[in-house]
């Protein structure tokens, strides 16, 4: 999972909706992908990202020798090549292979395995789980027991 995706994800528990953001990301295995730098993409994403969340997540994962992100978006951010390169590295090259994301509000853990985060939970307290509409199968079971 790259940090661009992390920037889009929130805890799915409705009670956490108001303070769902951000999920705290931890990693036990990181990978760096060598994707070719794409200035158009980086500048387009800059407008849409929550920069503070990206900065916090990136700084917690950054290793020595990897580019640094400034504490705030520079004024000429969309045209500053050096800044865009580090932004591109942060959102599209650094890949969390093994790790987890934790909701700061409810403490739920979303595991990341093989670069794929699992964002589903089995049931949420206080919410009626969706009931099956598969009547057919029940009918069948009944029929079989009759026989």
């Amino acid at each position: 999972m790259k940090l661009l995706t992390h920037n889009l994800l929130q805890c799915i528990v409705p009670a956490c909706r108001k303070h769902h953001y951000p999920l705290k990301v931890t990693a036990s295995l990181l990978n760096v992908e060598e994707n070719p730098f794409d200035a158009i993409f980086a500048s387009r994403m800059l407008e849409r990202l929550e920069y503070n969340i990206l900065l916090e997540a990136y700084n917690s994962l950054r290793q020595d020798g990897q580019p640094e992100l400034p504490p705030a978006v520079p004024e000429d951010g969309a045209s500053n090549e050096v800044f865009l390169q580090s932004l591109f590295f942060a959102i599209n090259c650094l890949d969390v292979v093994e790790g987890a994301m934790t909701c700061s509000s409810c403490g739920r853990i979303y595991p990341i395995h093989n670069s794929i985060p699992n964002m589903i939970v089995r049931a949420i307290e206080g919410e009626q789980p969706p009931q099956s509409i598969e009547k057919e199968q029940e009918d069948e079971e009944e029929e079989e027991s009759e026989n």
């Binding site: 661009l4 995706t5 994800l9 799915i12 953001y21 994707n35 849409r48 794929i116 985060p117 699992n118």
Partner: peptide, 19 residues
């Protein structure tokens, strides 16, 4: 380039609801 994959249930989508 590798895509990013997420296991999601769209009825309870984990994606932040902003453009």
């Amino acid at each position: 380039p590798r895509p990013d994959l997420v296991i999601v249930d769209q009825t309870r989508s984990p994606f932040a609801l902003r453009p």
